[in-house]
Nucleic acid binder design. Sequence first.
DNA 1: ACCTGAACACCGTTCAAGT
DNA 2: ACCTGAACACCGTTCAAGT
Lengths: 231, 231
Amino acid sequence: MSVRREPISRRDRPAKPALSRGWITETAVRIMREEGLEKVTMRRLAQELDTGPASLYVYVANTAELHAAVLDALLGEIDLTGRDGGEGWREQLRAVMRSYTLVLFQYPQLARSALVARPSGENYLRLVDRVLDLLSRSGAPREQVAWGVDKLLQDATATAAEQSARERDPAAEEEWSATVRAFGAAGADKHPAIAAHMPALVGGSPEERFRWSFDVLVNGIVGTPVPGAQG
Amino acid sequence: MSVRREPISRRDRPAKPALSRGWITETAVRIMREEGLEKVTMRRLAQELDTGPASLYVYVANTAELHAAVLDALLGEIDLTGRDGGEGWREQLRAVMRSYTLVLFQYPQLARSALVARPSGENYLRLVDRVLDLLSRSGAPREQVAWGVDKLLQDATATAAEQSARERDPAAEEEWSATVRAFGAAGADKHPAIAAHMPALVGGSPEERFRWSFDVLVNGIVGTPVPGAQG
DNA sequence: ACCTGAACACCGTTCAAGT
DNA sequence: ACCTGAACACCGTTCAAGT
């Protein structure tokens, strides 16, 4: 009965860790932090894990699921308490939403994938649960709260996907400039309303827009009954 | 001095039309209608136009710009009058937004690309101008109207990108089911708020959600001042 | 059950060379 | 100026074969 030995050549390098969903996700997160989500591909990830791409399909169904797992890992960083906001439900909710937005702003490509493939991981559930809880303290009917949470999260996700794609990606920056230029060039004859609303249309800091959007949604949600629901 | 002749073999097939941005876009729209946006690639498009992919780069900077051109072509189908809605600005605005939403629902992948790379074509400008005009009839201050139009269009785009990705794409359908399952499985102990809001969280028809979202946004926009602006 | 090499069927974009 | 063939540097996913 002989003792199994690693070949000597392997003793120099750290042992190759066994594949597992957790290890795959961790590695994917590392690649994303270092090089961006666009580098988190099955092939690149397999290379990093010192195996072939086919091996990953034992643990991950496809690329979309991989990206969803990465997002859920990131959502673990959100401060769910909202204690920075202060005492009231509205301030705490704003703080939680800001924390969520900030995470997505750091990884805008992740926000895009969240819009398409809705996450369903543990950290996402915790976030939804907390936002529901805070918003329900407004006293609004359950249907409004349920649909309202959807809107709040969708708004933050869409804003992150859109707004902050521009910061690193020069192509996206170019598209945004094109839009700004197009608005600016809109003549008062052909597009009078655009001309009339002009600096505001493209103005405002992300922070100002965040605050205003949040208040618009919360005011609208709390004040607008769901038709057919008992208010 | 000899007369140039087309080779006889060419006389059977229709003459190959000269490349141009317009013809490229038209062809791209046709491919999208027939086979979906995912088939609208530089290579596939070049094949359809009977040339090599490199030739397209004379007219189109990259794939994102190509998709933006396709979107703008589709936006030409929107009914900007809103006359289906009735008389008031709110009803007409709702009709225009519904028309926009319906176009995007037909081509959800296009909605995704619109979120990332904001369009700046002529049809998009017309849409923005009209929505600004209608919303300004609410009497809300200019800043609110300008930022509000942004929110309305973003909401419709995000909803289309999210909701209707599920209809054709089985992978997206699977992700959505996973979310529904996760919500349903959320125990009252670990996620009490999710459990408490449960059928509503995943319920409601697209039409019900559209109407409610529209009212939430319009109510919120009209009733929430932009900080620092003269109201 | 888990892992793999190899293959299939694609991508976007660039560049030197042609007309 | 416009167009092209060929190349570079990648993709996701499947499958038969191995352990």
